[in-house]
Design a protein around this nucleic acid. Structure first.
Lengths: 297, 297
DNA sequence: TAAAAATACTCCATAGGTATTTTAT
DNA sequence: ATAAAATACCTATGGAGTATTTTTA
């Protein structure tokens, strides 16, 4: 429940187009026109300047926008608080996440979420951080999960979990030691993710801190997916640097082993991303929920 | 414009009665019932406990009330800001004021107000401070103006103007001096307001500070209205203690003269009173306006 | 049994739609 | 000429009413 006329106004103010706002809100363009006219008549104020192909907000319109958004925010809080009270949620929540999160963290969280809240329709889009942020800006998703915080304007970031990349090898690799030095790492046969992946960027930066370039590594192979890398390791004595969340199960079941590289820190952060102005009410709830789910099993 | 369903809920929450809320909002009782049911269905929350002849707010209802009031406040601000922008106001504003203010200050302010805002319907109820505060609590008026601040719970006070009581006498009173001592005051023939009036209370308190009781004064006569006192002075050499605003014209035109009483301070404050939770939007505007009108002009 | 809340039904104002015209680049 | 906003007109839903029943002190 909220005030649809205010929502129409806010949408038009953001889109600066009656037609686009109509599409966004799934109503006809004349309906939007009428709502805006009604508001303008009601308050005897012109909210939009129609001269020139583009429409613009008048001064009154800007004031109106601020107030209207605060009222709509009030409705969102109301709904959220009532839902928290009864612990019942419904609706649709479109998530977007970068590969590692989408593959290894979110499925667990999403499964628990829909188990508890079966009336919520979840969907998940996968892409790299930039694509996720774009999807958010385009309103194709409601909540994003990315590696690191690029601090895009108009988006708000909130820490979700810490991640660490580790050097692993197959459990049957007889030559593997428990820990090695950075120099020794340079001579090991490595399988890494492809150029351009967030994972590889973290490795590159961590090495740079020790004045080592990627090209100095003995890279056997680069693969597009972490699953592929894991399969490869099963039948080889090579090593790989992967997110610890991606190999949690294999480590627990003893199929892979961690090899400590002294002095090399490969940490990063996973973070929620969502539009500044507080968008979807379920997004907020999902974030709360996710931060309570025990990860890594 | 606002969300009528929320207003219905808030009214019911305050009245704790569907029927009374309906009367207050000028709608039928079934309409109120339906609105509340709709809200309860929408959020799947029980807002009122119906067991026992009286209805009461549930915990959820209390939370809902807080949020709903904040949303409605948002609408009020929106309206007020838009109106300020166009400097156009309409609607009804019911004022209540204690005698002196109602007779000597408000007429001027009200006249200017309706001259500038002809679409506002003003009305004025007169009574003593207690009656004005009662009328506010009963929602029979929207804004009050009283002498002094008794700081009733649930009401908010805002300074409006300073007032001073002065000793006056007819201009033709040959015996009148420009200033006298407190002792000399005791021997003067006085005309005062009736027992129980705010004016007399101020005099009583000020004298008490000098350990003088009302009974020590030479009270010729007590009258119910300041106008009566003024008429009496016109044909007599008596003195009176009245609010300076009540005799501003007579002093300016030389029909009455002030006699200074050394060491006697008869000051008080006029204040606006209005309900805590921000009620009528016009009330706020009228207060702003009134504080800009040059008084005693 | 009396007062308040809930239900049943009727009616109409308005939000929304489609088709079309106007406006502005 | 084209794309967007405004207008005209129609429809149907939901909000409001009256009359009535149910509830509970």
């Amino acid at each position: 429940m909220d005030d649809f006329r205010l929502r129409v106004f806010v949408e038009v103010a953001h889109q600066l187009s009656f037609t686009k706002a109509a599409q966004e809100l799934f109503v006809s363009q004349p309906a939007v026109t009428k709502h805006i006219q009604e508001l303008e008549n009601l308050f005897r104020v012109q909210l939009f300047e129609r001269s020139g192909g583009r429409i613009t907000l008048t001064e009154a319109g800007k004031l109106f926008l601020a107030r209207a958004e605060s009222i709509l925010d009030g409705y969102r809080r109301l709904k959220l608080e009532m839902n928290l009270l009864t612990d019942s949620f419904d609706g649709e929540l479109r998530l977007g996440a970068s590969t590692t999160i989408a593959q290894y963290l979110l499925p667990e969280v999403m499964a628990r979420y829909i188990a508890r809240y079966p009336d919520v329709k979840l969907s998940l889009m996968t892409g790299n951080s930039r694509q996720v942020e774009e999807a958010l800006s385009d309103r194709r998703i409601d909540l994003g999960l990315v590696e690191g915080c690029s601090h895009q304007p108009g988006l708000k970031y909130m820490r979700f979990a810490d991640d660490e990349l580790v050097l692993v090898t197959g459990a049957r690799n007889a030559a593997a030691r428990e820990e090695i030095s950075l120099e020794e790492l340079l001579s090991l046969p490595l399988v890494l993710r492809e150029t351009g992946s967030g994972t590889l960027e973290v490795i590159e930066q961590a090495l740079a801190a020790h004045h080592v370039r990627l090209s100095q590594l003995r890279i056997l192979l680069q693969m597009g997916t972490t699953e592929g890398i894991k399969s490869f390791l099963a039948g080889s004595d090579a090593y790989a640097i992967v997110s610890v969340v991606a190999v949690a199960r294999e480590l627990a079941e003893g199929r892979l082993r961690v090899v400590e590289v002294n002095g090399l820190e490969l940490k990063r952060e996973f973070a929620f991303v969502h539009p500044q102005g507080g968008g979807h009410e379920l997004a907020e709830h999902f974030m709360r929920f996710a931060s309570l789910v025990p990860l890594y099993g």
